[in-house]
């Protein structure tokens, strides 16, 4: 399973919900969440952001990794949201090995650091 944590801030009749999805397992998981309140998903260039489709959010969370999402909802504080995020499904994702490298592996893959040739010349 995955751990889903959410918090909500209210301003001017709008609820701003931030959610983190943590995958404690050792394999990547494809997570699908459904939002139980009217959902204003984030927009990018006039389209819903990647991973969003109406009131559902679906994305892959790498092993031991955490992903964040956020959305707004036209709900007053008095109508208290409770927990607006429901986990629909969690399945092992099999096609995403390359996209889920750990930061340490990414750092190890970078070019080795060394002083530039420019400074070597100046020091001679």
């Amino acid at each position: 399973m995955v751990e889903v944590d959410s918090s909500t801030a209210y301003a001017d009749g709008v609820a701003f919900v931030t959610v983190t999805v943590r995958n404690p397992q050792t394999t990547a998981q494809r997570v699908c969440l459904r939002i139980s309140v009217p959902t204003w998903a984030p927009q990018r260039g006039g389209l819903s952001a990647p991973a969003w489709n109406g009131d559902t959010w679906e994305a892959v969370v790498g092993p031991g990794r955490c992903r964040g999402l956020g959305f707004a909802s036209p709900v007053e504080k008095s109508e208290c949201l409770g927990n607006p995020v429901e986990v629909v499904s969690v399945d092992r994702a099999r096609d995403v090995e390359a996209a889920t490298a750990q930061p340490e592996a990414i750092l190890a893959d970078l070019d080795a650091w060394s002083p530039t040739t420019d400074i070597v010349t100046r020091n001679r």
Binding site: L107, D111, A112
Partner: peptide, 11 residues
Amino acid sequence: GLAQDVGVELY
């Protein structure tokens, strides 16, 4: 640049 020094600092 984008070598390990920058990588470690960003990390």
